[in-house]
Computed example of a mutant assay.
Amino acid sequence: MQALAVGLACVLVKFGAWWGAMGWDRPMIASTITGILLGKPVEGITVGAALELVYMGTQSMGGVIPQDYGLGGIFGCAFAILVSAKPSVAVALSIPFSMLGTLIYDLFKFWATSLVTRFQTHLENHQIKAFKRLWNIQAFVYLLMWFLLGFISILAGTSAIKALVNMIPTVIMNSLTVAAGMLPALGMALLMISLWSKKLAPYFFIGFGLVAFFKGTLIEVAFLGAAVAFLAVIGQIGKHTNGNNAQPKTAESAEESEEEDFYND
């Protein structure tokens, strides 16, 4: 039943990520779904929050996925619950599965790409039913692939993973704990590489000060950050509205404003 639950979690996460890009493959959502299906929703949310910090800066660029963070979230949460391991151990165990997920997805894309000519042939011959049938086969293979990965991995690997965790010496376990504590910092660093600017730097140091000096929790900092962001957006909207009301628009200025808004959007 546990293997079936993890396999179903893989199907739900991948379904939500592919159909509609609903973001179900984010570690926070993936781990929560896994925790609910395994009957431990609180543990799922806790592990998901830890893994979200690790994979925060991991994004798909141009179709290239460096790590399958959804799969990492599923198996990290599953092993944390089934093996009764610490979140730090779950973080360490999720990394190999995130890399494995990338490899498996690349193999699927290779097979799916080979079907393009058949799809094109069905369209040219106006064989709509054959086109739909081939699409449904592709979707079924996609979801079945992830289900089997989750089912077989848990069915065959839980006992082995539990024995492996029990065999790990205390020194290595403490090292994994330290490494897991550093991984969220790495995730934040990867995120800051793409977002860092002089305008955003003060907000970063404000958040750092709230945690370092005033012992604020992440939830408290996130709440204050959301309030500051809301005020900043309201201020920008007010300035934009006042600027538009102060200057009467001629036909030429209106055209330039529309062009500027187009490129800004």
Rank of each mutant, 00 (worst) to 15 (best):
I168Q: 03
G150M: 04
V165E: 03
F140N: 11
M145C: 12
V171M: 00
A139G: 05
S153I: 14
T177M: 02
S159A: 10
I152E: 11
F147N: 03
V141A: 06
M173A: 04
G150I: 05
M173G: 07
G157L: 04
F147G: 03
L148P: 09
L143N: 13
I161N: 02
L148M: 14
M167C: 10
F151H: 11
A156H: 01
Q138K: 07
S159M: 05
L134A: 12
A160Y: 15
L148W: 10
L148C: 14
N166D: 09
N174M: 02
M145R: 09
G150P: 07
I154M: 01
I137Q: 10
Y142K: 03
L144I: 15
W146K: 07
M173Y: 05
L149P: 04
I154Q: 00
A156S: 00
P169L: 03
Q138L: 05
W146F: 11
A160D: 11
I137C: 07
I161L: 02
K162I: 01
W146E: 07
V141I: 15
K162F: 01
V141S: 13
N136Q: 10
F140S: 13
G150Y: 04
V141K: 06
V141E: 11
L148R: 06
L134G: 09
W135K: 10
L149A: 08
W135V: 13
M145V: 13
F140K: 08
I161V: 13
L134T: 15
A163R: 14
T177H: 09
S175Y: 10
A156W: 06
N136M: 12
S153F: 08
S175R: 07
N166W: 08
I152M: 04
S153A: 15
A156C: 00
I172V: 15
P169C: 01
M173P: 02
L143T: 14
F147V: 02
L143G: 15
L149N: 09
N136P: 06
A160H: 12
M167T: 15
I152S: 11
M173Q: 05
Q138A: 03
N136Y: 12
M145I: 10
M167P: 13
V171I: 07
I137E: 08
M145W: 13
T158A: 00
I168C: 00
V171Q: 02
F151N: 04
T158D: 01
I154A: 00
L164A: 10
P169M: 05
T170D: 13
I168L: 02
T158L: 00
V171N: 03
K162R: 03
N174C: 01
Q138N: 04
V165H: 02
L155D: 09
L148D: 06
A139W: 06
W146Q: 08
T177E: 08
T170A: 07
N136K: 13
I154K: 05
V165C: 01
L143R: 09
T170H: 11
A160F: 12
V165P: 00
G150K: 05
Q138R: 12
L148G: 08
T177P: 05
A163H: 10
L144E: 14
L148V: 15
I172G: 01
L134M: 14
F147R: 02
S159C: 10
A139D: 08
A156T: 06
M167G: 13
A139R: 04
F151Y: 11
L164S: 05
A163Q: 10
I168F: 01
S153N: 11
